[in-house]
């Protein structure tokens, strides 16, 4: 199991939820996992029902079996100031830099600097060791930018090492890439069983591979349970269903009876359902062609709360993740 787990996915697929569940799943038997947010949305705080996370590693949950999950929301400006402080002991000059717009420039406008800082911070956490020489975190899980931007985001060195040909930023970019392109890292994509997210997942995995980044697993989220165990026969007799409904105590089966009136709407819903199931089958087949491990997570109909998160984590563990 790679120590850096990058979780991306199309918007709306629940990648933050899956990343959080993965961190919980990895924090088994006394292990420590760090869950990192890079897009400043405070999604992790919402999931773990805590107040907004500061730029500081903080324990957010204890996993079953005693493992711990820490979380960090990276603030790019602070990361840059930290970084400058570390290398240049800038002191008050940091504030001057901010005043003049240099920090803004570096973190929002300068190509790639933002991404170098974010991935740099994550890789630092991956490599960090305590005094005894043990890794500070057994696993680091990154809630990464969406699929459309993930390869570019991770592949910062092309951009930055090329632009800044010497200097610490250059070195930093190189060091980050060594971690990201090694087997220490796995990039997972979260998808739904719908056409557009699956298409993006297929494209995204191809892009990752082309960039030499380690494509990990496909995590299918919000999978709806099967309700009908067989397709509705095309020659089904309306009258038979009306009778069964009536028998279940839902009114009369005769034409115009209350049970009879339910037949058409119920069959229409079944047709919708079957269309969806057929579509999902096609999406599963497309994902299978990627030749990567595929995991499915059930839809938690009532929305995600802390209990739901632990359920998803248990599910991931059961599937050997």
């Amino acid at each position: 199991m790679s120590r850096l787990q990058v979780v991306s996915g199309k918007g709306g697929t629940g990648k933050t939820t899956v990343a959080a569940a993965l961190a919980l799943a990895l924090a088994t038997e006394g292990k420590r996992a760090l869950l990192v947010e890079v897009e400043g949305r405070q999604g992790i705080a919402q999931l773990f029902e805590t107040e907004a996370l500061p730029y500081e590693e903080r324990k957010v949950a204890v996993a079953p079996g005693g493992g711990e999950v820490y979380a960090l929301a990276i603030d790019v400006e602070l990361a840059l100031l930290d970084y400058l402080q570390m290398f240049y002991r800038l002191g008050g000059a940091g504030r001057a830099l901010r005043k003049i717009g240099a920090i803004d420039f570096a973190t929002t406008i300068a190509p790639g600097v933002r991404d170098v800082l974010l991935t740099g911070k994550v890789c630092e956490a991956v490599r960090r060791k305590d005094k005894q020489g043990r890794f500070a975190y057994d696993y680091v899980v990154m809630d990464a930018p969406p699929t459309g931007r993930i390869t570019r985001f991770l592949n910062v060195n092309d951009e930055v090492a090329g632009l800044a040909k010497i200097g610490p930023i250059h070195n930093q970019a190189q060091a980050v890439m060594r971690v990201l392109k090694s087997p220490e890292t796995a990039v997972h994509l979260v998808t739904l069983l719908e056409e557009m997210p699956v298409q993006e997942t297929v494209d995204g995995m191809a892009e990752l591979k082309a960039a030499g980044l380690p494509a990990g697993r496909v995590l299918v989220n919000m999978v709806r349970p099967a309700v009908l165990d067989a397709p509705v026969p095309t020659d089904v007799r309306r009258q038979d269903i009306a009778k069964a409904l009536s028998r279940a105590g839902l009114g009369g089966a005769r034409k115009g009876g209350r049970a009879e009136q339910l037949v058409e709407p119920l069959l229409a819903q079944a047709a919708d359902y079957e269309e969806r199931v057929a579509l999902e089958r096609r999406q599963r087949a497309e994902l299978a062609e990627l030749g990567l491990p595929v995991h499915e997570l059930e839809l938690l109909a009532e929305g995600i709360d802390l209990a739901g998160l632990f359920r998803l984590a248990a599910e991931l563990r059961k599937q050997g993740l």
């Binding site: 400058l84 290398f87 240049y88 800038l90 000059a93 001057a96 830099l97 003049i100 240099a102 570096a106 300068a110 600097v113 632009l163 800044a164 040909k165 010497i166 200097g167 610490p168 930023i169 250059h170």
Partner: peptide, 14 residues
């Protein structure tokens, strides 16, 4: 000092 720092940080060429 700042341009110097930026130069060091980003590399002179950049």
């Amino acid at each position: 000092m700042m341009t110097g720092t930026l130069g060091k940080l980003l590399g002179g060429q950049f």
